[in-house]
Simulated assay, not measured.
Amino acid sequence: MNKIIYLLLASSILLACAKKEEANSPKMPNQNGYTVITSENIDMVKKFNDLAIAFDTAAMRAMYSSPQDTINDNLMKLTVGQSLQNLAQLNAAHIKPTIKKYGALWETINDEPNPKGVKNIVIAYIIMNLNNGKESKDVLLQQVCAIKDGKIVEEWDVYDTKPFEELMKAK
C-alpha cells in the first residue's frame, strides 16, 4: 500500500513539474509583464490627482508629454487643453472635489511596448467626493494612465457624469 502511495505521489510531482506545450495559445504582444503596488509612476499619478483637486492646471499640464496627448473622458477624445477646461468649469461652479480613497491602485509594466512605445500603465479606482457647499456626492472614477519617460502620454477616465451634472445645476 505504501508503495502505491509513493508511486502516486511521485507521478503527481512529475506531472506537475513537466513542461506543458501550449500549442493553441500563441504568444500575443504585451501578453507578459508584471504588476507593482508602489512605484514612481504610481506616486506621479497620485500627485497628478492631488493637483487636479487643487485646480492647479498649469502643474497638471506639465505632467503630460505633449499638449496633443489624448484624454479619453468617458470615451470622448479630448486634448489636454480641452480636458483641463472641464476642470476649470468645476472650479467656476464652486464644486470642490476631494479624493476619499483609492479603492485600488497599481502599475502594470509590460514586457513589450505597445505601438506608441508605452510599457507602463497605472490603473486607479478612486472614490471621489464632490461638494458644492449645499450637497455632497460620491463618484467612483476609474483612471488609466499610459506613462512613457515619466510623462502621461494617454489617459482614460470613466465615471458617472450624473453627480457632476446635478451639482452644476444646483449651484
Score class of each variant (00 low, 15 high):
Asn24Met: 10
Arg61Phe: 06
Ala18Asn: 13
Lys162Val: 11
Ile4Pro: 00
Glu166His: 04
Asn131Val: 03
Ala18Cys: 13
Lys116Arg: 15
Gln31Pro: 00
Leu78Met: 06
Pro113Leu: 08
Gln89Gly: 03
Lys134Gly: 09
Val122Gln: 08
Gly103Ser: 10
Ala59Lys: 14
Asn30Glu: 13
Asp160Lys: 01
Asp73Ala: 03
Ile13Asp: 00
Ile4Asn: 04
Gly117Phe: 10
Phe164Lys: 05
Arg61Gln: 09
Leu84Pro: 01
Val158Ser: 09
Trp106Asn: 07
Lys137Ile: 00
Ala16Leu: 13
Met44Ile: 00
Val122Phe: 08
Leu7Cys: 11
Pro67Trp: 12
Ser12Ile: 15
Lys171Ile: 05
Leu90Met: 14
Asp69Trp: 08
Glu22Thr: 12
Ser39Gln: 05
Glu22Arg: 10
Lys46Gln: 08
Ala92Pro: 01
Ile121Arg: 06
Leu75Val: 02
Thr98Leu: 05
Gln31Tyr: 02
Ile71Phe: 05
Glu21Cys: 01
Ile37Gly: 02
Ile99Asn: 05
Ile53Glu: 07
Met44Val: 00
Gly103Ala: 09
Asp138Asn: 11
Phe55Met: 07
Ile127Asn: 06
Ala10Tyr: 09
Lys20Pro: 03
Lys96His: 13
Asp157Gln: 09
Leu141Gln: 11
Leu75His: 13
Phe55Val: 02
Ser136Arg: 08
Lys101Tyr: 13
Asp73Ser: 03
Ala23Phe: 10
Ser83Pro: 00
Ile126Gln: 09
Leu14Ile: 13
Phe48Ile: 02
Leu90Gly: 04
Asn74Asp: 10
Leu167Gln: 05
Thr35Trp: 06
Gly81Arg: 12
Phe55Lys: 06
Asn91Ile: 06
Asn41Gln: 11
Ile127Leu: 07
Asp73Cys: 01
Met63Tyr: 08
Asp73Thr: 01
Ile95Tyr: 03
Lys151Phe: 04
Lys171Asn: 12
Ala93Met: 07
Asp111Gly: 06
Ala93Asn: 09
Asn41Ala: 01
Tyr34Leu: 04
Ile53Lys: 10
Leu140Pro: 01
Lys116Val: 12
Ser83Ile: 00
Val45Ile: 14
Met76Gln: 15
Met1Glu: 15
Lys3Tyr: 14
Asn86Gly: 08
Glu22Pro: 01
Asn131Cys: 01
Ser83Thr: 05
Ala124Ile: 04
Lys20Val: 14
Thr161Tyr: 06
Ile37Met: 11
Ala58Pro: 03
Ala18Thr: 14
Ala62Tyr: 04
Asn72Cys: 03
Asn86Trp: 07
Ala146Pro: 00
